[in-house]
Design a protein around this nucleic acid. Sequence first.
DNA 1: CTGTATCCCGATCGATACTG
DNA 2: CAGTATCGATCGGGATACAG
Lengths: 113, 113
Amino acid sequence: MFAKACPSRHTLEHVTGRWGGLTMGVLVDGPLRFNELRRRVDGISEKMLSQTLQALERDGLVHREAQPTNPPRVDYSLTPLGRETAERLLALIHHLEARMPEVLEAQQAYDTR
Amino acid sequence: MFAKACPSRHTLEHVTGRWGGLTMGVLVDGPLRFNELRRRVDGISEKMLSQTLQALERDGLVHREAQPTNPPRVDYSLTPLGRETAERLLALIHHLEARMPEVLEAQQAYDTR
DNA sequence: CTGTATCCCGATCGATACTG
DNA sequence: CAGTATCGATCGGGATACAG
């Protein structure tokens, strides 16, 4: 599990990285287009959103569906695997948010010491 | 949940960052000393282990107990909050590892396309 | 609208040496 | 043993411009 070369570490980093989790989190509610995603993931740049989506698509967590229309329209959604993964990730996030009072208290105690 | 300024994002990054999760993962099995941790978290440097532990301790996820002996002995362990957090994180990691065949298959398909 | 390409800066991280 | 200090190299990531 903690071997350096373990291939799951790469995927784990995509999911838990700075933008991966947030991106999957907003996709849980349903498919979104590129610029909708960009607006909902607070602070992400075009470049990072593009890179994040490519990594998640390559890992089979996100499905990309491009309509050959003009102007182009591309919908991103979670695959079944992506949805299962997002659920576990959200369980972690929600747990952390629920416990933030404890965390903040611990930080206060640490800093004053 | 996805606000840029949300304080839980900082803690989330400590937990899901490159070393935070791995460090908490090895601590689930019980308390460990500094160099034991260093050996078990494959590839981590002294500096990063030190920084990681300080961040997790400040967040109230890891407990640090120093014995005033010579040579010094310091034990690191998970707090109850840290344990609950680690469980959810491990649920994510184990899920991902169990599905790695699917992930690798998706990557193959993506790359050949 | 949906991206890609380029530049560039600062943060991150590893290696090394050193201290208590 | 348990860290801290310092120095480079690397890399993530933002801004901008551009393409289909």
